[in-house]
């Protein structure tokens, strides 16, 4: 923390215009992952999200190779993200296939798909590193994330996509809550549970792919898991929990991007995750609804007035 003053300046939006846009873009992403993460967690899809995130690596690598082969820059974002989305979808389908069609349990399906896809990505990356073309170093940021060198347009795209994700969740909020709480009941009353599950998975895929650039594919899952887990300690309402989770996600990403902006060697994803986890620990103790401190006081009060 040798750079406290610059950090304060950056946090208070006194850095350059570009930095501010990037930080706000990251915050929008953090909010989107916080929102989607609530349902990923409540519907028990958190670890699938981890596998899907790791499975973007071979897609990023194939996107790079395709772009280079077609004469584009290897860092061309559309190629990389399309590739990422394709292999992530393949991984999600593979997990479903393994869990439904073989005797392997879901956790084994998730772990083996994660390992195989990620390994394939790593093999492709090692291949790329020996290709005689530029821009290989640019791929590193997809592993652990970086906001340094991020363009204003990228940040704005990030924010727009995040808004779309938030709007979709808002539109389906009742139904997503219902299937997460009681899927049998929802099915019995004609709610399209499979379709809604698919929507959750699609939203997870979307934020993972959008978030690769900032957080990196190894740690993006933390932005889906940690903010909702922290938010749960503050409220017993799904709606409020979603808003709090969005706020925690946004704050963590904003903070991480700010630190990354003043020390370019810092992997943005790692800082974001550390901030989010610190908030989780604070919430565990001081959360207003389920925090350990509040629960302790509540228990004593109940005992005092029988």
């Amino acid at each position: 923390m040798k750079d406290v003053y610059p950090l304060a300046a950056v946090l208070l939006l006194q850095a350059g215009y570009n930095t501010i846009v990037v930080m706000l873009g990251a915050a929008a992403l953090g909010a989107a992952t916080g929102i989607v993460g609530v349902f990923a967690m409540l519907r028990r899809r958190a670890l699938i999200a981890d596998a899907v995130a790791h499975a973007t690596l071979p897609g990023v690598a194939l996107g790079f190779i395709t772009a280079v082969a077609l004469g584009f820059s290897g860092r061309s974002l559309p190629f990389l993200l399309t590739g990422a989305a394709i292999t992530a979808i393949l991984a999600a389908l593979s997990i479903q296939w393994v869990a439904n069609r073989t005797r392997l349990t879901e956790d084994t399906a998730i772990a083996s798909v994660l390992a195989t896809f990620f390994a394939l990505g790593i093999v492709l990356l090692t291949v790329i590193q020996t290709l005689k073309t530029g821009g290989q170093a640019g791929l590193d940021i997809y592993l652990l994330g970086a906001t340094a060198g991020m363009l204003r347009e990228e940040a704005i795209t990030l924010a727009v996509f995040s808004l779309i994700v938030a709007a979709i969740v808002a539109a389906l909020f009742k139904e997503l809550t219902l299937i997460s709480f009681d899927a049998d009941y929802a099915r019995a009353h004609g709610f399209p549970v499979r379709l809604l599950d698919f929507a959750i998975l699609a939203l997870v895929l979307a934020v993972v792919v959008i978030g690769l650039r900032v957080v990196g594919l190894i740690l993006i899952v933390a932005l889906l898991i940690t903010p909702p887990a922290a938010a749960r300690f503050w409220t017993d309402h799904t709606g409020r929990m979603t808003m709090i989770s969005a706020a925690i996600g946004a704050f963590s990403a904003y903070f991480g991007a700010a630190i990354s902006a003043i020390s370019p060697d810092t992997p943005t994803g790692a800082v974001i995750v550390l901030v989010a986890f610190s908030i989780l620990l604070l919430s565990v103790f001081f959360g207003a609804a389920r925090g350990i401190v509040v629960r302790g006081i509540g228990a004593r009060r109940v005992r005092a007035t029988p």
Partner: peptide, 24 residues
């Protein structure tokens, strides 16, 4: 029709109050 599943089928840690569940 209205269906009431067995109690065991839901997640009791879910962030919902009694009123929220009835509103479902």
């Amino acid at each position: 029709l209205a269906y009431v599943p067995q109690r065991a089928s839901v997640d009791w840690d879910f962030p919902a109050t009694a009123a929220d569940v009835v509103a479902m």
